[in-house]
Amino acid sequence: MTPLARVQERFSTQIIETHSFRGDETAVIRPEALRPVAQFLKEAPELDFNFLMDLSAVDYLFFAGGRIQKPARFEVVYHFFSLKFNHRLRLKVPVDEKAPEVDSLCALWASANWYEREVWDMFGIKFKGHPNLKRILMYEEFQGHALRKDYPFNKRQPLIGPQY
């Protein structure tokens, strides 16, 4: 049984959508189910996802020029990996634009700490229960969140020198 099928069986009501594009198994789950699903992924002996390999987010504002409408503006994307079984799973959580907040996974994987700080820095998505949620790549005085689609890539915010 693939990890995706196992998660589907266990959390059938919490899953919004699943797909397997080019062999990458993906489950989109409800935000409130993130903690229990993540805990299950880590602790179930037949899954044993001991790596949180990557954590990032995607901004779907005007996705495909506005032709494809996503239910929520952001998606936080988790890539899990199991050393024992050598399998991977991608988990996605839709995050609403008005209250961008999801649960932190710091308590389960130490690697979540810095990744979540980066997502906060770049997308302005908050992580409930994060011990030290502050910017990581940008400086504290930076205005806005750079990887949001409504942040122009050529906008400048010089710390010194003329303001324009």
Binding site: R22, M53, D54, S56
Partner: peptide, 21 residues
């Protein structure tokens, strides 16, 4: 669609996650 592809870099797993519209 979206894909994640890891290769072994000098320091470890170097993965690219690409979303296409």
């Amino acid at each position: 669609g979206e894909v994640y592809f890891p290769v072994e870099g000098g320091n470890g797993e170097l993965g690219f996650y690409i979303v296409s519209d």
